[in-house]
Amino acid sequence: MKRINGSGTLWRNRWGDRGGYMVEEAKKTFYEEYEVFSKRTSTTPMQYQFSLLAPNDDMALMMAQENFMRREPVADIWVVKRSNIRKVTVEERDMLQRLDNKDYRTAKGYGYLKKKWRHYEQQMIDEKEILSWGGDQRNDGK
């Protein structure tokens, strides 16, 4: 495989230890790689299952459930051709690091408000309180 600098189709990193832009040699085979995702119930998030080989999308879908979810309920399935996934390359993994100085972005950085609300004889509205509003409790004015 040849490396092209700057332009060309994005080379979907085949085994990830090289980054950069390359031209993929697209020769389709019976053994195309698919990643399989599924949802257990309608309320649970998509979860990664495993990968399989199949000649095309429809076949991959026909095989996915029985290969990886034979013994569990399934509410939905995604099959994704691996070459369509833009993964973080090993070199790019450095971009995932960040400093631990982002309190301003979390509730942790505003903890002092609790004390201040107490001063105003009110309770702070925290995460627990907010998430409890989702229920169907009645507003009794208190």
Binding site: R14, W15, T29, Y31, F50, S51, L52, L53, N67, R70
Partner: peptide, 21 residues
């Protein structure tokens, strides 16, 4: 099915050698 999963794991390891199932 176990064979399927284990061969998939092997196939990914074989990538640098250009080998497939």
């Amino acid at each position: 099915g176990h064979g399927q999963m284990l061969l998939r794991v092997t196939e990914d390891l074989l990538k640098p050698y250009g080998k497939t199932r």
